[in-house]
Structures are given as structure tokens and as C-alpha cells.
Design a protein around this nucleic acid. Sequence first.
RNA 1: GCGGAUAUGGUGGAACUGGUAGACACAACAGACUUAAAAUCUGUUGGGAGUAAUCCCGUGUCGGUUCGAUUCCGACUAUCCGCACCA
Length: 978
Amino acid sequence: MAEVSKVSDYLAAAKSFEKKWSDKWAKENPFKTLGPKDKDFDSTKPKKVILDFFPYPSGAGLHIGHPLGYTATDIISRAYRMQGYNVLHSMGFDSFGLPAEQYAIQTGRQPAETTDENIKVFTRQLRALGYDHDETARFESSKPDYYRWTQWLFLKFFNSYYNRFEVWQDKLGSEVIGRAKPIEDLREKLQSGKWKKDQFGEVGPAGNRYHIDVKKSEIEDLVDAARLAVIKNVDVNWCPMLGTVLANEEVTPEGKSERGDYPVYKKPLKQWVLKITAYADRLYDDLKLLDWPKGVMEMQKEWIGPSEGALVSFKTADGAKLNVYTTRPDTLPGVTFVAVAPEHPLAVKYAGEAVKKMVSLARNHAYEDKTTHQGIFTGQYVTHPLTGKKIPVWVGDYVLSGYGEGAVMGVPSHDTRDFDFAKKYDIPIIPVLMPSDEWLDANAPKGKEYASGKDLRALYIKDCAKFGTAFTDDGIMLEGLEGAEDLGGLDNRTAIRKICEKLEALGAGAAKKTYRIRDWLFSRQRYWGEPFPIVYDDSGKAYPVSEADLPITLPEVTDFKPVTSDDKDADPVTPLGRVTDWLKVKGTILPDGSVKLGEGKDAKTFSRDTNTMPNWAGSCWYYMRYISPNYAGGFVDEAAEKYWSGERFGAKGSVDLYVGGTEHAVLHLLYARFWHKVFYDLGLVSTPEPFYKLFNQGMITADAYSDSRGFYVEVDKVEEREEGGVRTAYNKETGEKLTINPGKMGKRYKNGVCPEDVCNRHSVDAFRCHMMFLGPLEATSPWRETTIVGQERFIASVWALAHRKDLDTSDAPANKDIERLVHSTIKEVTEDIKNIRLNTGISALMVLTNALAAEAKPKKEHVEILLRLMQPYTPFMVEEIYSEGKNFKLPAGVKSAAFLAWPQYDEEKLQADEVTLVVQINGKKRAELIVPATATDKEIEAAAMDNETVKRHLEGKEIRRILHIPNKTCKVLGIVVG
RNA sequence: GCGGAUAUGGUGGAACUGGUAGACACAACAGACUUAAAAUCUGUUGGGAGUAAUCCCGUGUCGGUUCGAUUCCGACUAUCCGCACCA
């Protein structure tokens, strides 16, 4: 054997050429994304936009989860490029936000400084892994060149409102109800009287419901309130330990901050809010346009949480209205109390002190036991809209203030919570619906009276409380219900409709759709974020800064720390509020209502907004910036956006493939969809959705090792051995036997894996293949470095194969079996790229490699096909082989192996002369023989019947049926006997 | 409680629309080369019976549909993830 060790030869070579190529690629940027304005751009080619989640550059550098997804997208984009697509695959950095700021605080340095440093490390690591990113698109969301456009886009929200009455045709030809429009459009509608108010103060097209004239003096207030970005007094999630408020999405179910796990308190504050609720229906419905994992779709649907129901008004003693929201208006005749949330004005007014403790409990998510409800009677009564009866008003801690109207109608007979509450406080229980017989049987109390054969229905009507719980399913309306005498015998779904009609006629309610999603709290009291492009005059009125003044740069300060405390009653203080020389600014109001900053003859003094935007802001539109990363004329170059969004193909989403973990299922993915839809409505982007296909990569788990005291031991201090077939771990230093704990990777488990180190030990190409070979990309797979030797051997075999001096370059016809394998491999690898099954793609390449290596004289053209198929997986090795110019050379005009043409397979060559025939008798495989591929059904049957084993199994049996079963790889004959 | 996902050899995993279960790889074992080891190459490797041909069992559990089920249906178990008083 000429080579002493294929693997060590290859590794020695890889060490130098991998560095050489990554340096060269970084310098020459061969993967620059071009657009319609560039002269070398071929806009007739189809496009693929492949996107990775926007990484936050942490101080720890890349962790193992990053290269899992990034390598997959890199392989896919390299393959599509070879297949003749224009490919956009870039990576910038999400560098603003809480984590970056926390890191700076912990290291006692400036966030701008630490962020720069971290990005240098990330960039180095990304380059080392050979990714085909555009070097000019490594923008950072914390740089003014970028956030200038984040601020510009924010102003679009500020200068728009949602016209929920507009019906329009979108680019897909679908009818859409509701659209964001310039705020000027609303002002005009109100000034001209085309829009009026309704009794609730809501505005809409003049007609029956909207008939109240809008006074001139009201117009500006209505306009301001209608903006998609608005300053509102809202109940916020205040986290004093972080010194900031948080979005609902950033608070865990336990009432802690997602980041840091600090307590979060409810507090009313004036804050920026983006009206995501206006888009609730479209965000929900348009999920059906997308190719997303089912789980993420379900999570978004649950988060949006639409529910169909009705608003019902009860009259209070002083003639005011107490509104409740219900999904079951059919049960209205069974209302025996009304419960309001502890924060409800009525509760505060009539239950005073007693309610305070309850309020603080409710606000702070501090229920110990969710099953025992506390209630306080307010002493007040309201009038039932159907029966006119007096209904007591209670304060109930189980009523949520933020949902619906913060008040519910109590129907103990048909709601379990109301039932428990009524039992506890001795409130009457009136049945409305007749349950099914099964339910009655199952829930009937024990005792003679309720024995089988008794009339349970009559007993239920007599005293439904005896049945121990509420009947919450659909049922039939009882006869003779007070206020609903005409509905007896109807199914309750019909009754819902009739009752809604009745309520509307009485002016005591109407059908209404409610959502669980709340408006998006958009300000943070932190330093490291985008400043708002907003200034205030002396009266506190907000003005947008003129576009020419953007960006509003974040002032450089020495003391950027938030004011944190463990006092939940502390008020938020913004770090920017301390920057006294920045706070006040001169400016002039322009005709369009914006403020041009700077001295001038009519200049007045304004004060700046001292909040910053949340870290989600930058990631809401970064995928657009990749299209034209350095474009100064707008957030995206319009012509380039049209091409890359796939508008001409009727694309539903701009990004063709988006790969990342599930951690952003509702946060980023919902926010970005919302922004995109607003921009779509305003004509700024060409597709209704940002991300057409979403793919969730799995998690990589790892074993952690703990000693007898329960302390974790660093992985590199551990040695694993095989003892009697059992994996056993020892501490290399002390020799102590350790416990193996499978689970998540993390600092605290001391089992993190640094991708860079693995690459240094095994080569980047082997690391890339190893990541992909762990299992299907979507699955959770355990990390094990030892098995990477399989990839090293595989790549080294290809390397050796490509360097053989005896490759067959003649025109002699190839061995048919090898030729067939070559073509089936092309097919398999191509399909695996399309279906994101990169693990089986590697298997196929291994099979071909093994077969070629076993040939006495492999054909050069076959090795070349193998190399081209491997380029996406092992770009370094393939680039090196082609650049050596020995066996393989790049064609003229092709600068890199990444731009070689993808091999095509020939359907004819996939056919074999002889195929396996599998004979099944009653579905069981009984024989396997070889028959000519051209054999007719008759010949196949004859061959099968001639087989000894088959004969034996058929002996004395009657053949009932013969089946020729289609199969891709062999022929299957099914014989059914009786 | 509700929703989603997963379950296949010693291990990671293949098997596309119901048709050869275990591709590919790791580990293990045996052999070749070597003074020896490593590396490399060759072979074996789901369990069981049999000299063999061959046969039986086998894809979390129980049942169903079918000539035939890892795949479809029903019930259940375990694990992971998300949501959880939303009226």
C-alpha cells in the first residue's frame, strides 16, 4: 500500500488548505450577492433566499447549535447555486439588546466595545467554517447605518393607521379585509366627515353604527390614538431587577423575566405600543399560506387566540353599563352573578381596601393555589338584560383584567370556575342546557334517588348542583327559561345566534371576536437599543423627527447602566434621561408634521424620547437588508427587493427557507410577520409574508459527567471506556468513576463543545459532515465526538481517490453497475438537498465512494461527479483538488468549485438489466431470485413457480390471487393462498 | 388539563405514496500486515433453532383494517417541547 495512513495524510493537507481558502474567500468575497443593477447579474435565473436566524454575538463565540443550522443552509445554498439559481445567503449580527448590554455590565465595559470584539470572534469562526456568506452583508443592527432604517420603519408605524374597513385585492389576487394606510388618509376622512363616531367612540364609515359627528377639536386626538405606534397608558410587565419593562412574550408563565429569571410585576405606565392586535386575524389566517412546522403554527395560533363570542351589557344601579365578554351567550339565562377582576373600576370603587390585597396578588402572578378562588361581594347589583332581574356583582380573583372586558357573567351551571365560585359563596345555580344522558349517568350523585332507571333529566332540572360539576358541552336549551322562553328545545349553537340578535335589538350587546394577543409593548428603559426618532413639545405632544435627521444616534455615555432595584414600587428611570446635554434639542415643525432638528429662526425647544426599542426591532426586518446591505437610498433597493422576493413567481413569502431553533416560535417570528404585513400594506415589500418555509433544527444534547458529590466535571477531563458493553466514564486526573447524565449542553453542566476546537482536531470538512450525519436536521441528537472518525475516513477516501494516478480517462464504456450507481447517487443527493435530508445525502455519497474505491481503475468522470456532489458538503477539499490542477481542473471562466455545474442524472442509466424478484406468499417474503428487467408478468410468475421454496409453500394450497406490486428497486410478486 | 413531537440492533440512524426492516456509520469480534501497537485492508455482527437448505420471533404496549403494517385507524404507556383560570 502506497499510503501509510489515508486519514493522517488528508488531515495534514487539510490543516493548511482550509486556512488558505477561508482567508482567500474572506478577502475576495466570491459570494457577493448581486442584484438587477449589477452588470454580471442574470435576472432570468430563478432565485433562492436561504436564511439563518439573526445571531446575537455572545461573548462565548459560536456554540454547537449555530454550525448545525448554518452548515445545513450552507450546503443547501451551495447546491442550489451549482444548480443554476441565484442564491442569497448572508449573515449579519443582532447586536443591540439586553443580552449584549448585560454582558457589557458584567465585564465592566462599554457595550459598543464588547459587541465589536464579540463580532470579530464570530466573524472569524464563521469564515473558518467555510460558509458562503456575502462579506459585505455582515452588518450589525447596532450600527447607525443599519438602525437608521429601523427608525425609519418605526416612523412608518407612527405615520400609519389600520383601516379595518378597507377591502382590497392583494398581489396574490386574494381579497383582504383591512389595510395599513398613511395617517393622513384618516385625518382627511375625519375632516371631510366621511368617517364618524359610534357610541363607544370608535370611528368608521358614516352609516347606522357610525353616526356621531366628529368635532374639529377631537380630530387630532383621534388621529393620534389611531396610529400603529402609539404612546399609551398600559399595564406593563415591570422588572425592577432589570430596570426595564418587558413584552408579554418576554415573561414566563411563572411571572419571571425570560432573560435572567427575575420577578416581574404589573404596573400601569405610559409606554410605546405597536398595534399588533389590528393584524390578529391576518396573522392567524395567513399561516395557511406558509410551509411551517405544525408545532410552530399551533403555538402562533394559540398565542393569537381568537375566540368568537359576544359582548353583553348589564345595567348598573346608576344607569351605567357593565360589559362582560362571553363565548357562551346561550347560557345567559343561567347568569346568577357577575364577577369583575380585582383591577376593575367597580371593584376598586365598591370593594376598596379589601380588594387591594387581592389586586397585589393578582398583579404579581402570585397565586399559590389556583383552585381556591377568593371573592368579595361589592354590595352592588346590575340588571339582567333579558330577565330584568337583579344580579349581584362580585369581585373574583379568577377574572383576568387584561382579557375581554375584565368582567365575566357567572353561569355556575355551565362553567366549572363559576360553579366552584357559586358553591363557595352560596350563589344560586340555574340550569340552561340539558346535558347528554351519558353525562348525566357519569355525574349523577350516589344514592337511591339517582339509581339507574330514575328520571335523571327531571332530577337535573330540579337541582343541577347535585351533579357536582358544571356541564360545559353543547346541549339542548331547556323549556320555559325566563327571558328565553322562545328558545326551548333549540340546540345551543342556534340559540347563540338568536340571543346575539336579541341583544343587538335591545342595545344590550353584540357578537364580538376577541383575541388573547395584546398589543406589543415597544419601549425599554435601557441604554443599548435604538433611540426613538420622536421628540416632544412642552405640552408633551409627540412629533416624528424628519427623515432627513435620521439616524438619531445613540449618545455615547460612560454611565449606561439601568437603574435596577429589588423594590417593586420603584419607578423606571431611563439611562438616556440622564444625558442632559442630549435631552433637549432645537427644531422646527415642518408642514408634514415632522420636526426638522437644528437651530432656525422659528426653532423651538423639544425634548427627546429617552426610551429605546426592544431587541426584537432590528430582527424584524434584517432579512430585507441582506438584499442590498449597503444601500443608502432606502431600507432596501426596490428593484432588488422585487427580484429577490420572487414577486414575479407569485411568491407568498420572500424567504424561501428559514432555518433555526424553536426558541423564536412566537416572539421573533410573530413580530417579523407583523412588521412585514404593515410594509406590504404600505407597498414597501412585495409579498404578504416574510418567511415561506420555516425549518426547525433540532437540539444537540450532550452527556454531562458528575462525580460522587454531584459536581460536574469538565468534559475534557473525562475518559470514556467500554466495560462489559457498558459505557463508563472516569476522571482522567483522579481516576474516579463518574456518573453519565445525558441532557442539554451548557456552561453549568461543563459539557459545552467548542466547534473551533473540533475543527482543529478533525478538519472543517469532517466537522461539517459530522454535524449533518448526526441524524435528521429536525431531530434532537446527542453529540459524540468519537464517531467523527467515520467522516474523516470517508473524506480521506475521496481525497485519495481524487489523487490516484491511474484513473481511467479512456472512452471505454463504464461498468454498468457502477454507472447506475453514479446516476442513482446524483438523483438521491439532489433530492436530499431539496428535502433537507442531508444525513442520507452523505450516506449516498459514502456508498458511491466505497464502490469507486473498490474499482480496479475508477473512471475519472465518475470521480468528478462525486467531487461535484461533495462540493456543498466539503467545500475546502473540493476547492483544493480543483485548484491543484492535477486530475481535475476548473473550466475556463469558473473561478471556484462552488460555481461548477451540478451533475445531471440520466433516467435511462438508472435501469438495470437484471432485477431482484421478491416472492411474497400471504404477505411473507418466501424467496428472492434474479430475473431480467424486461421479464413479463407471465415470465415472472413462471420463474416464481419454479422455485423450490415457493413450491413447498404452495403445496396443497389454492392460489386465490396473484399481485404484481410496483416497487422502485425490485420486482415484488404477491401470491395469496387459502 | 389542552396542543405538538418522538419511540426501530450495543449506539447514531435508514426504509420516499402500505410491499425485501436494520441502508450508511460508530462500537465490538475475528483475520491479514506489523517485533508490537496505532493506522490500513478483509470478514462477521437483531434474537433464536438447525450441519445445511430453511424456519420461527422481532420496529414502545394492546387491539383493528389488509394478501401484506415501522408506515393507516383506535386505545394506552414513556420521554421531550409549548400553553395553561382567556370565560
